[in-house]
Design a protein around this nucleic acid. Sequence first.
DNA 1: CCTGGAGTTGTCCTA
DNA 2: TTAGGACAACTCCAG
Length: 477
Amino acid sequence: MTTINSPVVVWFRQDLRIKDNPALLAAHQTGHPIVPLFILDEGNNGEWKLGGASRWWLHESLQRLNKTMKGKFCFQTGSAGKILKRVIKESGAEAIFWNRCYEPWRIVDDARIQQALQAKGIEVHTFNGSLLFEPQTTLKSDGTPYKVFTSFYKNGCLGKGNEPPQPQKAPKDLSLSTHTGETLNDLNLLPTIPWHKKLAKHWKPGEIAARARLNVFLKRGLNQYKEGRNYPSRNNTSRLSPHLHFGEISPNEVWHAATKRMGAKGCRKDVETFLSELGWREFSHSLLFHFPDLPRKNLQKKFNKFPWRKDQKSLKRWQQGQTGYPIVDAGMRELWETGYMHNRVRMIVGSFLVKNLMLHWHLGEDWFWDTLVDADLANNSTGWQWIAGCGADAAPYFRIFNPVTQGKKFDGDGEYVRRFIPELKKMPVKYLHNPWEAPEKVLAGAGVQLGENYPFPIVKLGDSRKRALKAFSELAK
DNA sequence: CCTGGAGTTGTCCTA
DNA sequence: TTAGGACAACTCCAG
């Protein structure tokens, strides 16, 4: 850069933080004033437009980052390529910094933008700000990508004594430069009907809240994590997923903070299990990178002829938490109410949709995409392919979750179901997960009238299980 | 190239 | 009551 005092641009995307943000740090170290920029570019991501819950989170997160930046953020809407060119020209910037993103359309678009800017003599500096290890660096010795988690994790990214980088400090005394743009509200991220107010009751987006969440988890959730993470009414899961998705906290920071607890008495297994969840995040991103069709195409081709049913009515019931299976309905209502669902329950509702209802995994994937605050292309696609059994390292087809067994096992006292299904609040625990089997007297005593204030099961477990097993086993032939 | 062990999270039946 | 095996075969991966 030749011109003294010419600004540099930092293009923020899924790295909405100042600590351990390599692009921001590098820009800061140039000594030039920084134009912090966010572009809402919805033109190039095909059918994966930001979901409703994600839009709310993004709005909140940007608002907080803008505050950290003393209100100097430059917001823009439109084509990223065009806007970058314009902002760079208008501001007189000679360099731009960003952290890389991994959605297939972004990889393509970013490469194009980088080339175009460099052709104009602009310095472009890009960094890894979102992953412990980037997907192109973790390959088998024959140069091909891993398809099995355990090998990927143990021999791949953590192989040969590899350790994720230590997090870097937040730059002090940022020198910021204003550039005219739109306001945050102009991005129109919030819905017109204020349904997002309920999300705000359960979540606090932003970097400060993300770090606070991490600390609460380390203090209260990590102990007994390995066991406790399976029980949806307990507070053992980290709930860091949306913070990680939007880059409000870096995986490096989370990794090293958790690793420090390894020495605590009896905590080693818990820490290891938690770290492996970060490993799954890496694995998902690796799969998406190497198999960009992952969100829409069965990784195992033989699934292309699977006889998915078409049944709008059942889909609706599933979405609304009206299937008549309490643990499934509680999960779907948790999702609608809070923008989140406990991991074990995600598997239960997923298995139910794909196996018991035999509806296409894309339908579940789409619904999660729209309603989850942690909606993430890599994690969402990998998860649905796994539960449908068509992905890499997938669940065997005969692994069909029984919602009653799962409910009794992992929500034995029914606390979770009662929390999200008030109409079953008074059901005795013996019939809470299978109210259709309760004697009339018990139902009446609990104020439950099946078919009136809580539905009868929409499918029979035994029959639908057999139907799925048959369909899945026929695929092999 | 060959070989053998293994693969996140289940369920159901039988003895 | 509980523990073990069947469920299916295939692909992946390391040596």
